[in-house]
Amino acid sequence: MEPVHPTSSESNQTPPAIFSGKVQFSGKAGEFFGIWIVNILLSIITLGIYSAWAKVRTYRYFYGHTRIDGHSFDYLATPIQILKGRILAVIAFLIYTLLSSLAPAIGLLFAIGFLFLLPWIINQGLRFNMRMTRHRNVRFAFSGNYGDAFINFVLLPIASVFTLHLLLPYVLKRIDQYMHENISYGNKPLTVNLQGERYYIAALITLGVAIGGLVIFGFFAGASALTIDNLNTQNFSLSTIVVPLLIATLYVAFLTLVGAVYHSLIRNHIFNNSEFTEVATFDSNLKAIDYAILLFTNVLAIIFTLGLAYPWAKVRRAKLLASVTEVTIYSGALSLIDVAQNEQSSFAEEAANVFDIDISLT
């Protein structure tokens, strides 16, 4: 989709641009590998306590190497903040697990109660993440409320089940709209204009790719099995190694392609239809095939190096996403006011991590 640009009447009121260019990511796999391996070792030695420091070091590395107009991002959270929130979240999770095992009825009540707690956890997690992000000495903020979060993250997904998930693209659109339109940069809210039909188109394209991928996957899996059977008749015992490996590789390729198609279409739509009025506009041109190849090779590299290629894969992904993202900054950015409150709790964010809730933004 073409990026949204102001009309002629609006452009007369738009302040002059002071920067227009791609996001720059200068991180290097070798540098991050050193940080990553130390994080792993110290987290193991300290029985997970150091993981709070590991998270902050990782965030600060990627934020610090991501630049727009020569200005990098800052991650402001401290390890102690993360550690306190993580400890509380783990305690809450352990209590839930213990009660569920001892008294399933109580566990069920907790599960129902968790549905009502979920919107608060998501809101607080997003609020913490935004508040701890800064660019040009101005912090981001999140202003979502419980009622809207409950509708978008609880009621609508449940309703989607009763429509055989035909409502799912609309639900995903509502979730993305909610998460992004409640973001502000300083005193400027993010204006977002997402279109439901784009989500249905993305879903149909992804479904078509999935069906085509399944057909190809089935064909090659069957052909591989026949080939190995023929080899086995010639006393080659390869089926127990080659067939599972080939099928697993094809399956990974299939999943990465399907995920890349949907993510690229939706990411482009969100970026191209969002702006901080008189402050910044965005363009994204992420191509599904490029993203699929990157994800697939990343997964293979991680598998065949027993995880040691993870830093390389993470840096590659960050570089690709930065290279397809363009930002135009207007002079209004020079007069922004930092209005983010200096709250300290990270409990909700860590609770979201413990309970496996993905609240990351596109």
Results as ranks from 00 to 15, higher is better:
residue 135 H to Q: 03
residue 123 N to M: 14
residue 146 Y to G: 08
residue 116 F to I: 11
residue 120 W to R: 07
residue 112 I to T: 13
residue 147 G to F: 12
residue 117 L to S: 09
residue 123 N to Q: 15
residue 134 R to M: 08
residue 139 R to I: 07
residue 135 H to R: 08
residue 137 N to K: 12
residue 119 P to A: 13
residue 121 I to L: 12
residue 128 F to S: 02
residue 134 R to K: 08
residue 127 R to I: 03
residue 113 G to T: 02
residue 158 I to V: 10
residue 112 I to E: 13
residue 118 L to M: 11
residue 158 I to P: 05
residue 115 L to E: 06
residue 130 M to D: 03
residue 132 M to E: 11
residue 155 L to W: 12
residue 143 S to L: 08
residue 122 I to K: 10
residue 140 F to D: 00
residue 150 F to P: 11
residue 140 F to E: 02
residue 155 L to E: 10
residue 128 F to Y: 05
residue 126 L to A: 12
residue 142 F to P: 12
residue 147 G to K: 10
residue 122 I to T: 09
residue 155 L to S: 10
residue 130 M to I: 00
residue 151 I to V: 15
residue 113 G to M: 05
residue 132 M to D: 04
residue 141 A to H: 11
residue 146 Y to T: 08
residue 127 R to N: 09
residue 126 L to S: 15
residue 127 R to W: 06
residue 154 V to T: 12
residue 123 N to E: 14
residue 130 M to K: 01
residue 122 I to Y: 05
residue 118 L to N: 05
residue 149 A to D: 13
residue 127 R to V: 01
residue 135 H to S: 04
residue 115 L to D: 02
residue 121 I to C: 03
residue 141 A to N: 15
residue 151 I to F: 13
residue 154 V to W: 10
residue 120 W to Y: 08
residue 138 V to R: 00
residue 118 L to P: 02
residue 136 R to Q: 04
residue 124 Q to V: 05
residue 150 F to Q: 07
residue 132 M to R: 04
residue 111 A to G: 14
residue 150 F to D: 12
residue 152 N to E: 08
residue 158 I to M: 03
residue 154 V to Q: 09
residue 156 L to E: 00
residue 144 G to A: 06
residue 153 F to C: 13
